[in-house]
Computed example of a mutant assay.
Amino acid sequence: MTANRRFRNVIRIGPVQVATSYDDRGSEKHTAACTAPRCNTSADYDSRAAAELAAHTHRCPVR
């Protein structure tokens, strides 16, 4: 089942978007997702700093 999330505080760092949302348990989560074609990288983090660091250091595996 897919999560129905309402994202807020969305920023873009290169091809990666970082956003904040609440998970199904009500905890605040921060997501970093790459929007480049054929790059399916995304991850949830507990802190905004970790998500932004992941966005800054992301390298797409597909060139």
Rank of each mutant, 00 (worst) to 15 (best):
M1E: 08
R12D: 08
Y45R: 05
R12I: 06
T31V: 11
A36L: 15
V10M: 12
D24C: 03
R8Y: 11
D44H: 05
P15W: 04
D44F: 03
A54S: 06
R12E: 15
V18Q: 12
R25E: 12
A43G: 05
S42P: 01
S47V: 01
A55L: 08
A33F: 08
K29G: 00
N4I: 13
H30A: 02
A43T: 05
T35S: 14
V16K: 11
N40I: 01
R38K: 14
R8V: 15
R8M: 08
V62L: 11
P15N: 13
S21Y: 13
C34R: 10
M1F: 03
N4Q: 14
L53W: 01
V62I: 14
R38D: 15
A36K: 15
Y22E: 14
T20F: 02
A3Y: 11
P15L: 06
R48I: 08
A51Y: 02
R5N: 14
D23Q: 04
A3S: 11
H58S: 01
H56N: 09
V10K: 15
R59L: 05
P61D: 00
L53R: 11
A33W: 14
E28L: 04
A19L: 12
G14L: 05
A51N: 03
D24I: 08
E52K: 07
R48V: 06
E52S: 04
P15R: 07
P61H: 00
I13V: 14
T41Q: 09
A19H: 07
T57L: 00
V18C: 14
H56C: 04
P15T: 10
S21D: 13
A49P: 00
H56L: 14
Y22N: 09
D23W: 04
D44S: 08
Y22D: 09
P15Q: 08
G26C: 03
N4K: 12
P37E: 12
C60W: 02
C60F: 01
H58A: 00
D44W: 03
V18H: 13
N40A: 07
F7S: 10
N40S: 07
N40L: 08
I11M: 12
G14F: 04
A51L: 04
D24M: 06
V10A: 10
D44P: 01
E28D: 00
V62R: 02
V10P: 03
N4F: 09
R8A: 12
S42A: 08
R63C: 02
L53M: 06
R5T: 13
S27Q: 12
A55Y: 04
A3R: 11
T20V: 06
R12S: 13
V18D: 11
D24G: 05
R38S: 14
H30Q: 09
T20R: 10
A49W: 00
L53I: 01
A32Q: 06
R48E: 13
H30S: 02
D23I: 05
D44R: 05
M1P: 07
Y22W: 01
P37H: 10
P61A: 00
A55E: 08
L53P: 00
R8D: 13
T35V: 06
N40P: 01
P61Y: 00
